[in-house]
Design a protein around this nucleic acid. Structure first.
Lengths: 340, 340
DNA sequence: CCATTCTATCGAAACGTTTCGATTATTTAA
DNA sequence: TTAAATAATCGAAACGTTTCGATAGAATGG
């Protein structure tokens, strides 16, 4: 039905292979015939058939995105943004993204993503806590892969990570500079590297400011990092009766949960407590007071991962290394700094 | 490298074609050989190569998702949710989704999505305001397609739509049942069928309740439907000085913008004004007061579209028709009804 | 001026399936 | 008992490219 390379060849009076050479910008084709072929391609509005090209060249034009189910259903659409970032960047490199989720109860030879089994991707992005068995499988298949916001315990990796330490430092030193020295931390899901590192960054920043760490000011044992977890954590903290005037939440969803809890207990933000979150999600601007937070460019995070992956695919071999995504504090009303 | 159908055939002692027949569950293969072949497939952990299968069967296993750029960058992640809904449902039918955006300044023969040119999809989902030229192109290629939350002006269509009329009716009659009879409407982007229909539904519901429509209570000329548009619209409405005690916003993002504006003007919700939104977005629960709204299951909307599309692909011909997604009012604090 | 290298082009195999028509074996009908 | 229909299996073509090795002609070197 559609026009094929054969049609182009015959109409241009050259062989199939010559057209292919032109299409793939290979050497050793005269400028003259190149132009002739190009004109015919234009005239016939020819576009190579992706599938056929794929079979011959052992290339798919697809990149897989593997995500754990629980991360995907997180209220906070963090990974959704990351995924969209990969979409945009992938398209710029002429790839399409194939998305799939795996769940925690992963069993080998059973739950391997279909696009891997069917050899339908040129590389994969791994986001969130991916089961070790799966990572091992991917390594075996020699498929290029890049981690996003996660690091496995072992093995050589290519990864793109948030600069959580720096973010936590910026958040905490913003609070100390405002004069706070009793600064609490609220977090959860400490299995996730990001949250763990944010807590570490918090401690480090305190020490750098000459403030000792008080474990009574830390609530980090919530199972997850959603709004409710923030709410619950804050309730625990308030129940302890310890004094604090600054609060650093592991992410914005939790920060907003804290806010709700504090409001219910007549603790005013920013008057009684200055609050800083992490992530910079959309509705930080829709709540009262607008939330001071550490901005994370999730879309860019995805884009960086794709760039790394495409580089590896082109190179034809694994390229080890980690890249940190810089983050930036954005100061809003919740830390009491008045903005014009 | 990988194990192919050839390996299975020789190990099972049958021909290539027999293995293929087994794989595709065709008739006329004896139970005995079927089992023998299946055992070998298991033993070798064979999985057919998607690309090769695609070339031979003229099938891609992919579904395209076409979206307008401006809709995609909308603050409110409506279409993102719809897309995820298609992802999940597509996977259940063993398809992968390929996403792309087109922009308003669409030119034929230039901005046609690559997956269409390269014949890399078995069907497409069209979300939002898709340029008519593109629709025409898709029709010509005989690619099955389904619209989501949009209807083109002309031609036979298969579409999945939100039951906006019913949603508006539920919203408005909730307000009238609470005793309000001065009910305002705030909307924008009236080019979009959904918003237009919500306004119509609002008027219809008023009339059904014996309340005449007062154009002074309607602000619908905002360019878009984001938070800011709601904010601006509400400012205009308040400036008019007309009295109202109920407010129906075209969507939740606008409703939240209204809320912000009212707060700045010391109009209290729900005490002075009872507010209902539309969509039921995540942070309706994170704002004060929690927003009464019309719940739209965006994920299900996407899933419905996929089911329709898969049906068409299987049938091998276009199937005309529209399906309405039922919606449901969820009552929260912003309409003043106290919930235990 | 001939041997060598280089350039441009081509033919054919290969990629891993599906599918169609042929073939053989088996059953059914007359 | 034989012709016809049916069931099971197979061989080969086809899908639309890329790529490798071959070939012929042009350029280069000694």
């Amino acid at each position: 039905m559609g026009v094929t390379i054969k049609d182009v060849a015959s109409k241009a009076g050259v062989s199939l292979s010559t057209v292919s050479l032109v299409l793939n910008k290979k050497k050793n084709v005269s400028e003259e015939t190149r132009q002739k072929v190009m004109r015919v391609i234009e005239a016939l509005d020819y576009h190579p058939h992706r599938i056929a090209r794929g079979l011959a060249s052992k290339t798919t034009g697809n990149i897989g995105f593997i995500l754990t189910e629980d991360h995907f259903s997180r209220a906070e659409p963090f990974y959704t943004k990351v995924f969209l970032g990969t979409e945009f960047e992938a398209r710029a490199h002429h790839y399409y993204m194939l998305l799939t989720t795996v769940n925690g109860s992963f069993r080998k030879n059973k739950h391997i993503p279909r696009f891997l089994l069917e050899k339908n991707v040129d590389g994969v992005i791994l986001a969130g806590h991916i089961p070790a068995v799966l990572i091992e499988y991917i390594r075996k298949t020699k498929t290029p892969f890049v981690f996003v916001d996660f690091l496995p315990k072992t093995g050589a990796v290519s990864a793109v990570l948030i600069d959580n330490v720096d973010g936590a430092r910026q958040a905490v030193s913003h609070l100390t500079q405002l004069g706070h020295n009793r600064i609490a931390f609220v977090g959860g899901d400490m299995d996730h590297p990001s949250l763990k590192v944010r807590l570490e960054g918090y401690k480090k920043a305190l020490l750098e400011s000459g403030i000792s760490v008080d474990e009574n000011l830390i609530v980090a044992d919530e199972p997850s990092t959603a709004f409710e977890d923030g709410y619950n954590a804050m309730c625990k903290l308030l129940k302890r009766g310890v004094e604090f005037s600054g609060l650093f939440a592991g992410n914005d969803a939790m920060a907003q949960g804290c806010l709700r809890c504090m409001r219910e207990h007549d603790v005013r933000v920013p008057d009684d407590v200055a609050l800083v979150g992490f992530d910079d999600i959309e509705n930080d601007l829709m709540i009262e007071p607008n939330l001071t937070t550490v901005h994370v460019d999730k879309v860019e995070l995805g884009a960086m991962a794709i760039r790394r992956l495409v580089e590896m695919i082109k190179a034809g071999h694994f390229i080890q290394g980690k890249t940190l995504l810089p983050v930036e504090l954005v100061v809003r009303r919740s830390t009491g700094v008045s903005i014009k």
